[in-house]
Design a protein around this nucleic acid. Sequence first.
DNA 1: TAGATTGTTAATCGATTAACAATC
DNA 2: TAGATTGTTAATCGATTAACAATC
Lengths: 213, 213
Amino acid sequence: MKRKPSEVPHISIERLILYRRCLLKLSCSEVFHVSSAVLGRITNVKPANIRKDLSYVGEYGKPGYGYEIDKLLAVIEKIIGINKLQRVIVVGVGNIGEALLCYQDWAARGFEIAGAFDKDRRKMGRVINGIEVRGDSEVLPFVKKEGIEIAILATPTEITQSKVNELAHGGMRGFYVFSPIVIDVPGGCYVENIDMISPLEFLVYRLKNKISK
Amino acid sequence: MKRKPSEVPHISIERLILYRRCLLKLSCSEVFHVSSAVLGRITNVKPANIRKDLSYVGEYGKPGYGYEIDKLLAVIEKIIGINKLQRVIVVGVGNIGEALLCYQDWAARGFEIAGAFDKDRRKMGRVINGIEVRGDSEVLPFVKKEGIEIAILATPTEITQSKVNELAHGGMRGFYVFSPIVIDVPGGCYVENIDMISPLEFLVYRLKNKISK
DNA sequence: TAGATTGTTAATCGATTAACAATC
DNA sequence: TAGATTGTTAATCGATTAACAATC
């Protein structure tokens, strides 16, 4: 039963993102099809759960054979919306920002870092992995000219919310934020927020209580 | 109804971690008590959901008044297991590793970076935020001597799994891994794994489908 | 064909939420 | 006391899973 994309459960979308990452790796090693059992072993997801998730996006499996990896990748990318290249910017070029600029798999995952911005004069002009670091004041004209909709914010926590406000005002619609705070955005804007410490705290909990997940 | 810690739903534990982060901030600004309604506004969680989560850890709220922040912090930290200082190591001092070493709130969150390790001779001996970077060969004796149970791995993806194997063999029990791969660990070991790109892909999905969460 | 594996069903399991009596 | 807010209930909502007919 094929649902409209917006009706696919969020948790299934998150797993589809995981499946894709593993499928990309398989397709690099000359594997052409995969069963839910094998993909389940790779991802630690139960085969029935995988088939259920995949059933939301259509019927692409062959009984007795499995799923064709290329076809599956294409349809998952379409559902997620990364079948076309996504151009994003990085704001804040500290250690996290630099790590992002240096990441080698952006293209494979469907993204391009169109620009990087920092307010520190000493960083301006530096070229990291082929990407020039520009001054903060250039960011609004840049995103307008280039039609960028998504920003990755790796700024100091204290200034992150005001940076989001400024960019939202300038038309930015998606924010991927690395500060450990809850971010507010105006209507029509979307934010994903990660706190890199929280999963470590969860790990402590699991360790103490012997919870294998 | 108080359950044993291991019976608190995982998703409630994740929210408790979020509540704690926000409560820590409140307690810094001289706020002494908070209602589920106010905490709900701060965290974007429904008040009923918060009260339900908190009911798993005991009865610490006063009707008409709310929750005493210090008390609540103490009990949440006890449940998660971070009421005592957690000493961890960082393996791999690239950009991500360095960002972790420079993080200023470790102590407030209940952690201490006991040591950092890298196999690059040029990084060995450097002192970052007061933490000396040691050679990779020192890691096993170090963790044995210091009784470290948790390692944060910010290594290149290609070597992460083998590093985990080596450390697990040396007695390490918890692994917090920054590589975008599924990590296998022996029984009795636990792993939390984050892929910094996946949430960005999820953001693209939400943007395309106007899903506010 | 025989073996393998899909897509779907229906039962089970678990999480969320509105409502409200209890109570500070 | 009156107002505010808790902790809990029970209904609702949503996700997981084993099982299996269908089918390549």
